[in-house]
């Protein structure tokens, strides 16, 4: 797709601006570009689907839509091997801690795409007693794909937006950050207290 055909161009442009303003070594910059080119064309999703939207995600993998064209085909079942997570389906209270743990287990740099009304805001079940009203309450989200379920084409559009975002990122000293276990527990005292009280 051409640059003008995308929406949200200002967002990407502002990211680029930010990068430029911070100044960068030419060599590192070129290396960054190369790495990002590779990364953006081989983003591996985590097989994670809780409900209806997940089925459209399966359709993406099949012959008609074929996400292998974009390098997304290697769906991993373990979060440790995946780059990003398509949250396809409703996240409910009981699932929330599991989902959160899956997110924490993804290796950096990691991305999250919220697919469908449910993941974005709770969708048709927003008023329910047991549904999380949007996954951005729990984890940071990079791309939102609205729909119920979004059409496969819409999913591709969202995935391509993620690729564009990856392409303009700063890899060294940027997204390739190192976070330790201790950092995580410092940021999440509640989880630390509940689950690692013994440590």
């Amino acid at each position: 797709m051409k640059w003008e055909d995308f929406n949200e161009n200002e967002y990407i442009e502002s990211l680029v601006e930010e990068l430029k303003s911070s100044g960068q070594n030419v060599v590192v910059g070129k290396l960054d570009q190369l790495i990002n080119w590779g990364r953006s064309n081989s983003l591996w999703p985590l097989t994670f689907a809780t409900s209806c939207c997940g089925i459209e995600f399966i359709s993406l993998g099949a012959a008609r839509y074929d996400m292998a064209r974009f390098g997304f085909e290697v769906a991993r079942s373990s979060p440790r091997q995946a780059d990003f997570m398509m949250v396809a389906g409703t996240i409910v209270h009981r699932m929330a801690p599991v989902f959160r743990r899956l997110y924490e287990q993804l290796a950096e740099p990691k991305y999250v795409i919220a697919v469908g009304g449910c993941a974005i805001s709770g969708g048709p079940f927003r008023n329910s007693y047991h549904v999380v009203k949007g996954i951005d309450e729990i984890v940071p989200v990079d791309v939102f794909i609205p729909g119920c379920p979004p059409r496969p084409e819409a999913m591709f559009y969202g995935l391509m937006q993620l690729q564009r975002k990856v392409k303009v990122e700063r890899f060294f000293g940027g997204v390739n950050r190192k976070r330790t276990r201790e950092d995580f527990f410092r940021e999440n005292p509640e989880i630390a207290e509940r689950e690692h009280a013994q440590e």
């Binding site: 389906g89 409910v92 009981r94 079940f125 008023n127 329910s128 047991h130 549904v131």
Partner: peptide, 14 residues
């Protein structure tokens, strides 16, 4: 189970 319990029956009541 319950990892995708969405409370549909209660929602229908309203």
């Amino acid at each position: 189970c319950g990892y995708i319990h969405r409370g549909i029956e209660k929602l229908c009541e309203n």
